[in-house]
């Protein structure tokens, strides 16, 4: 017997909401990146879990693999940008970055 699929979905939803909260709460860009990674993993978990509903094809798992690739790219570009901002401002706290005002 396998645990219910829905439990995985609950976990994914929890990770997603936590990730979103992390992005909103933290005042540090690297922390925000961690939150975004959490959100991406939530989606992946969903994809893999749903794949059990449709075992005929492996679409979900394939998608999850591509998401991991994209996450790598995003992390690389993101960190490069963070480091560059860091060089300009000597901080990675978004609130202290205020050249642009709305």
């Amino acid at each position: 017997m396998m645990p219910s699929l829905q439990h995985l979905l609950y976990l994914a939803a929890f990770l997603f909401c936590t990730g979103l909260a992390v992005v909103m709460v933290k005042r540090n860009t690297i922390m925000m990146l961690l939150g975004i990674e959490l959100m991406l993993n939530a989606s992946n978990l969903n994809l893999v879990a749903f794949n059990r509903l449709y075992p005929a094809s492996l679409d979900g798992q394939m998608f999850a693999l591509f998401v991991i690739i994209v996450a790598v790219c995003e992390a690389a570009v993101g960190l490069a940008i963070v480091l560059r901002v860091y060089q300009h401002y000597q901080t990675s706290v978004p609130d202290e970055i205020s050249e642009l005002k709305g």
């Binding site: 997603f16 992005v23 975004i36 959100m39 989606s43 998401v67 940008i81 560059r84 300009h88 642009l100």
Partner: peptide, 20 residues
């Protein structure tokens, strides 16, 4: 650099939401 950081953070969250 700040513009591109904002773009990145906002964009990544948006695409994560879309992915979900």
């Amino acid at each position: 650099s700040e513009g591109s950081l904002k773009y990145f953070l906002f964009g990544s969250v948006a695409s994560a939401v879309m992915l979900y």
